[in-house]
């Protein structure tokens, strides 16, 4: 466990004046569980007895005091899923993975959890794996779901979903195409811009597949860094009027061939993007 990460989380929350639960949620999001060392740091920083933090950490279901697997499988057992044979699905996962609900496989690949209701009751039984929803799950589909999770969803999506399509981007200032046929990403020419952060100034290429998040750059960009984008042709900074609604960094606008505007967040690691096909750009 890296204590700096915990310190950063504590700093962020003390500035925003947030409570204990938000802090623990962030720590859990970062480490997939609540390490004891981290809880001790929280206790000291917030001047709360460790026993009280332990109370909170064990009271709420979202928290785990033991490390969890790489993939989280969450099977819904809400009333609607229960009457639609959700328990049979849970049993099937248990027997396929060789663990009980609430446990993690010895190779730390999978954690199986049940949840009281995910709020998609019309489509029960529901299973959520690493944020991906599966609806009307039948016993025979369980194996496939586990395999898909092990494979990873982003690669699976690109291969299987033929509706993921490439976009052609151009500079909103000079209208020059930003496509770079010499650098292929996801089998298509990439979008090339000039990226600047700190003292670094170099090329950056983005996959032109809408729905792919692949990015390569001349200089490695540290996580969370806000990057300035420039057109490699007219050298104007690509800067829109809006900021990212999720992280507050400026959004980078580019014109999309066919009539539209795509905006991507300029912060490394933030996946927010918007493809506007019409509408007022005020």
């Amino acid at each position: 466990m890296n204590p700096d990460i915990v310190r950063d989380i504590l700093d962020k929350h003390s500035q925003e004046g947030n409570g204990l639960i938000s802090i623990l949620e962030d720590i859990q999001a970062r480490f997939s569980y609540l390490p004891e060392e981290a809880l001790k740091m929280v206790a000291e920083a917030k001047n709360i007895p460790l026993v009280d933090i332990y109370g909170v950490a064990t009271f709420y279901k979202a928290f785990s005091l033991v490390p969890r697997g790489k993939h989280l499988i969450c099977a819904c057992l809400g009333t609607a899923c229960h009457v639609r044979e959700g328990p049979i699905i849970v049993k099937e996962f248990e027997s396929q993975l060789g663990i009980k609900a609430g446990e993690t496989t010895p190779d730390k690949e999978f954690t199986l959890e049940t949840v009281a209701c995910l709020g998609a009751c019309a489509l029960g039984p529901i299973v959520v794996v690493d944020g991906h929803y599966f609806s009307n799950v039948g016993q025979t589909e369980v194996r496939g779901i586990i395999e898909k999770a092990a494979e990873g969803f982003e690669t699976a999506d690109l291969e299987q979903d033929y509706h993921i399509f490439p976009v052609e981007a151009s500079c909103p200032k000079c209208n020059h195409s930003l496509m770079d046929p010499s650098r292929i990403i996801d089998d298509y020419p990439s979008i090339r811009v000039t990226a600047s952060f700190g003292r670094n100034h170099g090329w950056l290429t983005i996959s032109s597949m809408y729905g792919s998040y692949k990015v390569f750059s001349e200089y490695e960009i540290p996580k969370e860094t806000v990057v300035h984008f420039f057109c490699p042709h007219c050298h104007a900074e690509l800067k829109g009027a809006t900021n990212c609604v999720l992280c507050g960094a400026p959004m980078i606008p580019m014109i999309v061939s066919g009539g539209g505007m795509i905006q991507i967040c300029s912060r490394k690691g933030c996946k927010n993007h918007m493809l506007d096909l019409s509408g007022v750009n005020l």
């Binding site: 979903d161 509706h163 993921i164 399509f165 976009v167 809408y210 729905g211 999309v256 061939s257 066919g258 009539g259 539209g260 493809l275 096909l277």
Partner: peptide, 12 residues
């Protein structure tokens, strides 16, 4: 959504 966006952009 992707299918619709792809069609709308592709066919202008």
């Amino acid at each position: 959504i992707r299918a619709a966006k792809s069609r709308i952009l592709g066919k202008r």
